[in-house]
Design a protein around this nucleic acid. Structure first.
Lengths: 159, 159
DNA sequence: GTTGAAAATAGCACGAA
DNA sequence: TTCGTGCTATTTTCAAC
């Protein structure tokens, strides 16, 4: 049995999780659809306790939500690429809007350095990739690197 | 009520989803913990049908799993960065292993271009970032761009 | 954080289209 | 085939402790 006192540190937003919460988050990361009762078994607590902790992790902002890991290749998106995007002078916001409006950009971070945006692109074909980049071409300079494989699949940092 | 004929195209691995599957995947993406009965309500089918479709999407490889979206800043990881990594000659595999062994690298793609790896790094502080990059420094050249914000939060391409 | 009871849900077998 | 109905077992939730 695992006895862990309730963390008061969630609100500070800067601390580490206690052991029970860490185990809960790790378990949910490997399968977000685990039932509360099974989750309870895994962490050695009762279901209501675990349920309450999950609720608290949600309202504390640690858990933003639960999502599905979709293999885009299995639904026809054969090509993934990372695109660095440098808007021409004065076109930063326009370019950002264009990126957001193109659903093939499935992720985009604003970063420091020469290229303000780094976006993940998912397309069916090279032709489609070209179509998407064409939209940006008169407003930004882009550098595209096709993804050949994965060395580290998305994972959580140490909890 | 939604009548959609069952897709025979899942096995081909290259096709698009039928409307029911698309709605199921989209709904699960917004909340992977939806109950089958609620999911059934959302897509206008019975719970057993939806349940079977989710099972099939899993075994077809479309759904790889269900995960939790954790806000790493809420657990003390204040800094995120994208790191381009170019191993020195002959050190490609060594560097890949070093990346995989460092849990602060929460994602790493192998890409085309001058820099073979593009990794996402999550750390508590600049000092920790330096520590992590130091490990690579004698085997690779790295270019680090700190993430200032997000333009597009991770999302699915059109289904 | 735990226990126990009521309500909701999941999973299975079956029949219908 | 795939979808829907009715059943039982499990799970979730809420109460009280």
């Amino acid at each position: 049995m695992l006895k862990a006192k309730t963390p008061k540190n969630l609100q500070s937003g800067k601390s580490t999780l206690d052991e029970a919460d860490a185990r809960i988050v790790a378990a949910l990361d490997s399968d977000a659809r685990l039932s509360m009762s099974e989750l309870a078994r895994l962490v050695g607590m009762s279901a209501p306790s675990v349920s309450e902790r999950v609720r608290r992790l949600g309202s504390a902002g640690v858990i933003r939500g639960f999502t599905v890991d979709v293999d885009t290749r299995a639904i026809g998106y054969q090509i993934r690429a990372m695109v660095r995007i440098r808007p021409l002078p004065g076109k930063l916001h326009l370019v950002e809007k264009l990126i957001q409006e193109r659903p093939e950009f499935v992720e985009c971070d604003k970063i420091t350095g020469d290229d303000p945006f780094l976006a993940r692109l998912v397309v069916h074909s090279i032709e489609q990739m070209d179509d998407v980049l064409e939209v940006l071409s008169e407003h930004a300079v882009t550098s595209t690197a096709v993804i050949k494989g994965t060395s580290v699949k998305r994972r959580l940092p140490p909890l």
